[in-house]
Simulated assay, not measured.
Amino acid sequence: MSSKGVALVTGAAQGIGKAVALRLADDGFDVVVNDISANSDKLDSLVDEIQNRARRSSKCIADVSQEDQVNAMVEMVVQRHGSLDVMVANAGVTGGLSLVEATSEQWDRIMNINGRGTFLCYKYAGIQMIKQGRGGRIIGASSMAGKQAFASQAPYSASKFAVRGLTQAGALELGAHSITVNAYAPGAIDTPLMASTEAATGMAILEMFKEMSPLKKFGVPEDLANLVSFLASKESQFITGQTISVNGGTFFD
Rank of each mutant, 00 (worst) to 15 (best):
A54W: 15
A54S: 15
R55E: 13
I61W: 14
A62V: 14
S65I: 13
S65Y: 08
E67M: 05
E67I: 05
D68L: 03
D68E: 10
Q69A: 05
V70A: 09
V70H: 10
N71C: 15
E75Q: 14
V77I: 14
V77E: 11
R80D: 11
G82V: 15
G82A: 14
S83H: 15
L84I: 15
L84H: 06
D85H: 14
M87F: 06
A89S: 12
A89Q: 03
G92V: 05
V93H: 04
G95P: 03
G96W: 01
G96A: 04
S98T: 05
E101L: 04
T103Y: 05
Q106E: 10
M111F: 00
N112E: 10
G115D: 00
R116I: 04
Y122R: 04
Y122P: 02
Y124S: 08
Y124T: 13
Q128Y: 13
I130Q: 12
I130G: 11
K131M: 15
K131W: 12
Q132G: 09
Q132Y: 07
G133M: 11
G133R: 12
G133K: 14
G135D: 05
I138V: 08
M144E: 06
A145F: 08
K147Q: 11
A149W: 09
F150W: 06
A154S: 10
A154G: 02
P155G: 05
Y156P: 01
S157W: 04
S157E: 01
A158S: 13
S159V: 10
K160P: 09
K160T: 10
F161I: 04
A162Q: 08
V163A: 06
A171D: 12
A171C: 02
E173P: 07
G175S: 01
G175M: 09
H177P: 06
A183M: 06
A185G: 02
I189A: 08
T191K: 02
P192A: 09
P192D: 08
M194E: 11
A195H: 12
A195K: 15
